[in-house]
Design a protein around this nucleic acid. Structure first.
Lengths: 197, 197, 197, 197
DNA sequence: CATGAATGAGCTTTCATTCAT
DNA sequence: GATGAATGAAAGCTCATTCAT
C-alpha cells in the first residue's frame, strides 16, 4: 500500500542473511544478537525463527551460499595437473573468490575462536587445508611448504590488512596477487639461491 | 594444612591471568565467562573483582604484561638504520617475541572482531603498523610493501596455521623465519626479475 | 483451564505497573528488586523486560500515567487569572489529584534521594515549582511566598503524615484543605496583622 | 613524615561519620557504598569495620550524635507549661536545631522509605510525634491539629524546599519561622474567623 | 589501628529459543 | 508468513561483611 513493505515479500530469507552477515562481520558473531538483526529488518525475532531454526543456522546458510565458489575452485584445482601454471591460475581464481565473498571471509578470519566451536569450523578448516594441498608440493621442503601457506595468507592479509594503506584498490589487488604468485613460483623452483645470502 | 590451598597466597592475580589467557585463547573472549575462570581457580567470581575492576581489565593486564617484548623490539627497531641486516634481525627477534607470547598472539589473531571494540584493539593495531613501518621501505613499490606485510603475516601464520603440519617444531620455526626473511630481502632488492616471468 | 492464569493476557503491562508501584511505595525503589516484582506476578524477570526496557522505565511509565492529572491541573491553573478564588480552586483540585495518585506521591515524597538521580527527578521538581508559581504572588513578600510553599507542603503532609492520627479520613482531608486554603488566603491578604502580635 | 596523614590519628571515627553523612545526604543511603566512603577517606573498607559493626551502625551513630539537640528540646518542651509563648519558643529552638543538623535532616526527609526499615526509623518517627504533641492542643479541633503539624512541616520545607529561591538565607529563615509561629498562634487562638470566608 | 584477600548473596540485564495465535 | 508474550539460563558486576595478619 505505501511501498514501505515493497520488495518485502518472498525475499525475507535473503534479507536476513544479508543483514546478519553485515552485522556478524562488523561486530562479530557473539556480539550480534537476534534482536539486533530483527530490529534492522523491522520484523520480530520470532520471524527469524520462521526462516531459520537457530542462530547458528543463519550463519551456516550464509557460509554455504557464499563459499560455493571456493568449493568449485577446489574441485577444479584437484582435477588439474600440479604444474606451476595451474597454481598461478588457482591463486588468480582464489583472489576473485575472496573478493566476491569479502565480508564472509573477513568474518571467518576475525572470528576464528568463535567459529571453531561451531559446525562450520571444521568445514572451513577443511577447505583451507584442501587449498593448501593444491598449491603445495607434498614432498617439497618444509620451507617451500611454508611458502605455499604464506601465499594463501598473503591473499587473506591483502584483503583486510591493507585496507588502511594508501593506493588504488585495484593496484593493491594486483600487488598482493603478484607476491602470492611469486611465493608459489619460488616454492616450485626448489631451493632458492636468494635464501642462502 | 591439606596442601589444596598451598601456593594460594600472593599470586592470585597472576593465577587469574594465566587461567584467563588459557581460556580466552581456547574458547574466545566472549565465550569465556568469569564464572568459568573462577571455578578453575576454585575461588568465587567476586575474588576476580578484587584483583581486576572488569573482565576487560583482565585482558588488558595480560596484554600489557605479555606484549612488552614487542614494545621493546619496536623501540629497538626504530633506533636502527633501515638496512637489510637490521630487518633480518628484527624478524628474528620478532619470532622470539611471538614464541614467548604465543597464547596471547593466537588469541589476538583469532578474536579480532571482539578485540576491535575493546580498548586494546587500537593499541594492538598500532603495534602492528609500527612493526610494518620498521621493515618496509616507505617509498618502495606497492608490491614491495605487500611483501613486508606478508612477511609479518607469514610469521603469524607460521605460529598457528602450521600447528597441524608434520615436522619438528624447531624446523618449522626456521622455515617460517627463512621465508619471512626472503620476502623482506626481495622487497629490499627492488623490482624482482622473477616476478616478471 | 484452571483459572490461575485467567485475566493474564493483555494486561500484564498494567499488572507490572500496579505491583511495582505498590512495592516501590512500600519498600522504596532500590530495595525493591525485579525478582520480587516478578515473583508477585508469577512471571519470570525476563517477562518484565519484554514490557519495559529497564527498571527505571517501569517507574517512569507509572509516573507518566499517574501524574497526568497534575499536569492538567497545572495547565488549567496557568490559564486562570491569579485571583484568590482561583488559588482556592487549585488547592481543592490538587487535593483530588493527590488522593487519586496517593501511592505515587507517597513514593515520590519518601524516595527523593533516589529519584533525584533518575530521569523523573527533574520532571517532578519542575511540576512542583510550577504549582508553586501558580499559587504564589511572584512579587509578594518572602513571608507570603513561604506561606504558599507551606500550603503545598501541608497538602502533602496531610496525605501521609496524618495517616496515624485518629479521626475520619474525610474529616482530615477537609481540615488539611482548610489550613492550606487559609495559608494562601493570608498570603493573598498581604501583611498579616496577626503575625505582628 | 609528610603531613599527609597528619590530623589523621584518633579522629578516624569522626571522619567516617562526616564523610558518610555527606554522601548519604547527597546520594541516599542505599546508593552510598562503603567502598565509596572508604575511598574518600583513603582507607580500606575493613577499616570502617574497625570503627563500626555495620553500615547501619554508622548511620545510627550519626543520628544519635546529631539529634541530641532535638532530644533536649523535647525534654525541655515537655517540662514547660503549654502556653502560646512556650510553643513559639519551641519553634524558635527547633529552627536552630534543624539548622545545626541540616544534612542529617535533609537525609531523613529524603530517605524515609529506606529509613523506615532501619532501626532509627521508629526513633525518628517518635521524635516527630513528640514534637507534634508538644505544640498541639490535644483536644483542639482537627483543623488546629493540622495547623500544628503544618507548622512543623513548614520548618522542614523551609530548610530544603526554599534552597533555590532567591533571597538572603537569614531572611528566609525568619520568614519560615514567622509562618510557622503564625500557624501555631492561629491554632492556639481557636476557630479562626478568617477560615470562614 | 588497619589492611589484603576473599566470600555469598544478590542485582540488573541480555540472550537464544518456544509456541499459541 | 509472521507476531506477541513469555521463559530458563546465564552473564557481568556490586555489596556488606569477615578474618587472619
Amino acid at each position: 500500500m505505501d511501498g514501505t513493505k515493497r520488495q518485502r515479500r518472498g525475499n525475507t530469507r535473503q534479507r536476513i542473511q544479508d543483514v546478519a552477515l553485515a552485522l556478524f562481520a562488523e561486530q562479530g558473531y557473539e556480539k550480534t544478537s537476534l534482536r539486533e538483526i530483527a530490529e534492522r529488518l523491522d520484523v520480530t525475532k520470532a520471524a527469524l525463527y520462521y526462516h531459520f531454526k537457530t542462530k547458528e543456522e543463519i550463519l551456516v546458510s550464509i557460509f554455504e551460499d557464499l563459499s560455493r565458489p571456493i568449493d568449485e575452485l577446489i574441485e577444479w584445482g584437484k582435477a588439474q595437473p600440479r604444474t606451476r601454471d595451474t597454481k598461478r591460475e588457482v591463486l588468480r581464481r582464489y583472489g576473485d573468490a575472496l573478493t566476491g565473498a569479502a565480508p564472509l571471509f573477513r568474518f571467518m578470519q576475525e572470528n576464528q575462536a568463535t567459529i571453531r566451536e561451531l559446525s562450520i569450523g571444521n568445514r572451513f578448516k577443511d577447505r583451507m587445508l584442501q587449498m593448501r594441498d593444491i598449491i603445495r608440493d607434498p614432498d617439497a621442503s618444509l620451507t617451500d611448504q611454508v611458502r605455499c601457506v604464506s601465499a594463501l595468507f598473503t591473499m587473506h592479509a591483502g584483503m583486510f590488512a591493507l585496507q588502511d594503506v594508501e593506493g588504488d584498490p585495484e593496484d593493491k589487488r594486483k600487488a598482493v596477487l603478484e607476491v602470492a604468485i611469486d611465493l608459489v613460483t619460488q616454492a616450485h623452483a626448489g631451493p632458492s639461491p636468494a635464501a642462502n645470502a
